[in-house]
Structure formats: C-alpha cells, structure tokens
Design a binder for these strands. Structure first.
Length: 186
DNA sequence: TAGGCCATCTGGTCCT
DNA sequence: AGGACCAGATGGCCTA
C-alpha cells in the first residue's frame, strides 16, 4: 500500500500564525478553501490548505491598498504552491534514487523495506567491501602489486581517475563491471 | 503509547 | 528573477 502516510491531511496551518480571526472578510480565506490552488488532491496525498492571512488588514486599511495587498498575497500563494509542487517532485526523484540504491545493494531481509538511513549505511558498507575486493585484485594485476596497501590504493585511484578522464562515466562503469566479472572468474 | 520513519509544507539561501 | 537545494516544523502511519 502506498498509503504509508499522508492519507488525509487536515489543514496544516503551519504559517506560525496561530489562527486567523475567523476570517473577518471571507474573500481570501474562502477562495483558498474552495480548493482553487490551495487544496488539491494529488495521487492520494493531500496538499494542506494555505491559510494566508492578509497581513493584519486593520480596520482602517484603504480599499486600494488592500486590493494590491491581496493580489500580492495571491501571487505569493500561487508561487508557494508551485514551489511546493517542485519540491514534491524533487523529493520523489530523491526517493526514486533511494529505491534504485536499495535494489543495487545486496541485503538480507526482504520482508521490510530498508529505511533511508539503512540504505545509506548498507551502501557505504557495500562500497567499502567492493573497494577492498578491488584493492586485493589490484595487487594481483597491477605491477608492483605487492607493496603496502596504501601504495595499492594510490595506484588504484590513479587507475580510476585515468579511466574517468579517458572514457567518462560509462567507461568507468564498464571498467568496474569488468573488474567485478574478473573477480568472479578468478 | 512512545518512538521511528516518512511525506509534505515552508522560508531561507545559493545558483544560473 | 526564478528554480534548486536545504533544514526545520508538523502531523500521519506503523510497530514494539
């Protein structure tokens, strides 16, 4: 189920402003509640309604000024919503990347999805392990391989950077794949 | 019920 | 100027 969270999110009112005074002039408030841009359903999740309190609006505010203020507020509100949407997309991309990482690293338990922190930790350990393997291999296939591991690491790094410069990322990927298959063969 | 994890909103800052 | 990135806040769902 994808309803891990956010099934329904009643108004979020997070503009540190406590609570509007029962919208004295209902225009702005109601327009937002009407769903316009403020409350939209997206893939089951709910976008909290913005409750932009038009700055105080004391009793004496002139109409013209209020108009301008409201328009500014409205524009801001639209901007905010667009911004929220982008942020959501960004986070979705990030989550996709996490998912890809989960699938890339071997782990034991499959009954439960790895959390983000677990994913990162396992990935780090996995990289370390692979590095160790590669270092061991480099001792066999590189000249002067019998030296101290520090020297091997330097050589490996040079080798890595050389591939990166000469063939770009794809070449590097191929390089690592070759290394891995070589390791499996041997 | 507390704690962990997560999605979303939001405002600030940096970058193009 | 506008978008990307980031971190804090908030609140929902789930599990021990």
């Amino acid at each position: 189920m994808k309803s891990k969270g956010k099934a329904v999110r009643p108004s979020r009112r997070s503009w540190s402003d406590p609570e509007p005074e029962q919208e004295p002039d209902t225009e702005p408030g109601s327009s937002e509640q009407e769903g316009s841009e403020a409350s939209v359903q997206i893939g089951g999740s709910w976008r909290g309604s913005l409750r932009r309190q038009g700055g105080g609006a004391g009793a004496g505010a002139s109409v013209g000024r209020r108009r301008r203020q409201q328009r500014g507020t409205k524009e801001r509100s639209v901007r905010r919503l667009e911004s929220n949407e982008r942020e959501r997309q960004r986070m979705h991309k990030l989550n996709n990347a996490f998912q890809a990482l989960r699938e890339a690293i071997p782990h034991v338990r499959t009954d439960r999805k790895l959390s983000k922190i677990e994913t990162l930790t396992l990935a780090k350990n996995y990289i370390k392990s692979l590095t160790t393997i590669i270092l061991d291999m480099s001792g066999a296939c590189l000249p002067d391989g019998g030296g101290p591991s520090g020297a091997s690491a330097v050589r490996l790094l040079q080798c890595y950077q050389q591939h990166l410069q000469e063939e770009g990322e794809d070449g590097l990927t191929q390089y690592l794949t070759d290394m891995q298959s070589f390791n499996q063969d041997s």
